[in-house]
Nucleic acid binder design. Sequence first.
DNA 1: ATAACGCTATGACAGCCGTCATAATAGACC
DNA 2: GGTCTATTATGACGGCTGTCATAGCGTTAT
Lengths: 198, 198
Amino acid sequence: MTGSERGPRERMVFSAAQLIRRGGVTATGMRDVAAHAGAPRGSLQYYFPGGKEQMVNEAVGWAGRYAGNRVARFLAALPEPTPAGLFAAMVGQWTDEFLASGYDAGCPVAAATVDCAGTSAATRSAAAAAFATWTGPVAGALEEMGVPAGRAPALATLMISAIEGAIVIARAERDVRALTTVARELGPLLDASVVPPG
Amino acid sequence: MTGSERGPRERMVFSAAQLIRRGGVTATGMRDVAAHAGAPRGSLQYYFPGGKEQMVNEAVGWAGRYAGNRVARFLAALPEPTPAGLFAAMVGQWTDEFLASGYDAGCPVAAATVDCAGTSAATRSAAAAAFATWTGPVAGALEEMGVPAGRAPALATLMISAIEGAIVIARAERDVRALTTVARELGPLLDASVVPPG
DNA sequence: ATAACGCTATGACAGCCGTCATAATAGACC
DNA sequence: GGTCTATTATGACGGCTGTCATAGCGTTAT
């Protein structure tokens, strides 16, 4: 997740996501992004002729792709794949980060939605797309574990909703309690939705 | 929820919550709040000597109290109180508002957390308190319905986490799908946690 | 009448914001 | 060398921000 050793453009997109995660979209200045990425200020209007909105949208897209890709890795790391195990891994990524690095950073997609849903149609759409590229792999994984195809997308949405909400509560409380709670309470429900093959 | 017919101070707190709901904390200017409340600009530094932070914190507190009070009303309106019924009512409040008034406004507590958790300890604390004054009545209601006392707070946290997350997704998608989904998928789990008396 | 008090009015301050215009640099290719 | 392209540098613009200082009004109380 270090995002170093890439081109200055990619570094800026990554830095934008990182700063949006912390203070929200409005509090994130373009000059701050360039500085955080170690990129020259003059590159801003060169790489992002669409202005701040373009930069924010790309950061949101990056975050969505990042979350989607993580699903496959979580799956591969599980000794035996179960829905509850996948959910615990997704939650664990957040509890680990909170406990290790503090509660200053949340989900950039949620931050962009909260700050821009009412003002920028493009950013709102980018956020919806990001949620879709996150929910898709989760639903696919559930299906592979034996969850009926008609149920998997709904459960994936439930999982991500619970995580997003628990992230917010955890940041407010400075405690991972909400995250561990949703993992514990939701796990049995998820595993119970698996239909044995045959 | 109209907040009219109150003193100018209360109107400003209410207006602050209303504007924060839409654009986030950083995008909400104090002059905007006064204008939205129909209050004179000169009253800002008189009623809120603690500056913007004080105003935001009071708006967050107001929102928490509002959400907490709604729980008792939902309960009273239910023909026969069940956990799934309460949850459906809580979700229904949001789906109704989204369908009637559009997707421009979310939860002010979540917005304040996303925007200020890393920068203002007081606001972060106010958000945590708001979540507590919301979760408390929900847990109490569950308990009265027969949910074991040891389980009720956890389920209340799960309910609110799922709602908060679904609100964000719904706003991004401009669709109540996420909200109706969590209500449908979580309802049976909640009702199943009721232990018959005896 | 005079004083006190609750509230409002107004203007200014420094600072940051996104955006634009324009010039300068550096390297590659012919 | 000349030319073209890719990238960067720099400065300025208008506008908005939260905050402060200070004066003003209108009512009430003494």
